[in-house]
């Protein structure tokens, strides 16, 4: 079973249906027992970094997510969920993140369109099980802040938007995607499928 961590941020319907279409049972979970027993967990999220961390702390799901990450089972942060994996975010003042990946989340600055919204091309920077059998292509982004990993080896894929923008990160069993794989056509679904394969469950 795949747990989608439900901490009151955003619509989880699309991601849950996408997982089911890939042949895995998905549940929205906000209790420790369900999350810890899942074969893989997804930390979704849209909205503001500070609000999201506040919700996670209020529900105790910040600790549960850290424990899940420490269990060695695959964890995937999507969009804001990816940003929360980092040490800190600067949205509306500095906020501590989950601290699972060293680095910070900063606002786009420049005379170009913000948010970075639309289809942009991935460039794979490292070998990763997520890229198994896949070619680089376009995925769908919507974000005004972007992550700056401290360590190059955690940066798995980038996209080009007036600079290199972090698109996929990973360390051991912990992964993050800045774009929405569930809204990114076939490539998005394949990336999600490759992540789900890490749960060790055969496709139904």
């Amino acid at each position: 079973m795949i747990a989608i961590i439900d901490y009151g941020m955003g619509n989880l319907h699309s991601v849950s249906k996408a997982i089911e279409r890939l042949g895995y049972p998905a549940v929205l979970a906000s209790d420790e027992e369900t999350i810890m027993s899942a074969d893989a967990a997804i930390l979704p999220g849209v909205g503001a970094f500070g609000d999201a961390m506040q919700n996670l702390r209020d529900t105790g799901l910040d600790e549960v997510t850290r424990r899940y990450a420490a269990s060695g089972k695959p964890l995937l942060g999507i969009c804001l969920g990816m940003q929360l994996l980092f040490t800190s975010g600067e949205e509306h003042g500095a906020n501590a993140g989950l601290g699972l990946l060293p680095g910070s989340v900063v606002r786009f600055e420049g005379s170009y369109k913000i948010p970075h919204m639309g289809w942009n091309k991935l460039e794979f920077r490292q070998k990763s099980p997520l890229f198994e059998g896949l070619a680089e292509g376009h995925v769908y982004f919507v974000h005004s802040f972007h992550a700056r990993p401290e360590r190059d080896e955690h940066l798995l894929a980038t996209t080009d938007y007036y600079q290199h923008v972090t698109a996929i990160v990973g360390r051991d069993n912990i992964y993050g995607m800045q774009f929405h794989p569930e809204k990114s056509g076939e490539l998005g679904m394949q990336l999600l499928a490759n992540f789900l394969k890490l749960s060790g469950r055969p496709e139904a």
């Binding site: 249906k17 769908y140 809204k183």
Partner: peptide, 11 residues
């Protein structure tokens, strides 16, 4: 909308 969101992979 609910059904469409469950079926498609684009915004």
């Amino acid at each position: 909308v609910r059904q469409t969101a469950g079926e498609i992979t684009i915004p």
